[in-house]
Amino acid sequence: YLEDVKIQARGQLQAVESRYKAQKRITQTFELEILDLYGRLEDSLLKKLEDEKTEAAE
């Protein structure tokens, strides 16, 4: 019976562990997305600044 309880406990632990891992993979995907979006946002801001400079020079 004791062995039973131990196996059950290990099973529960593993279940949460695998849920954690799945969630972490989602987080990692989102992280890449965020990095990409920040990059695009910065590009577009930089471009705007450059355009403004060119205009001012003309």
């Binding site: 972490k24 987080t27 992280e31 965020i34 990095l35 920040y38």
Partner: peptide
């Protein structure tokens, strides 16, 4: 570490 890193990602 997870939470710390997340806060870095979102600046």
């Amino acid at each position: 570490r997870d939470v710390y890193h997340a806060l870095q990602v979102i600046r």
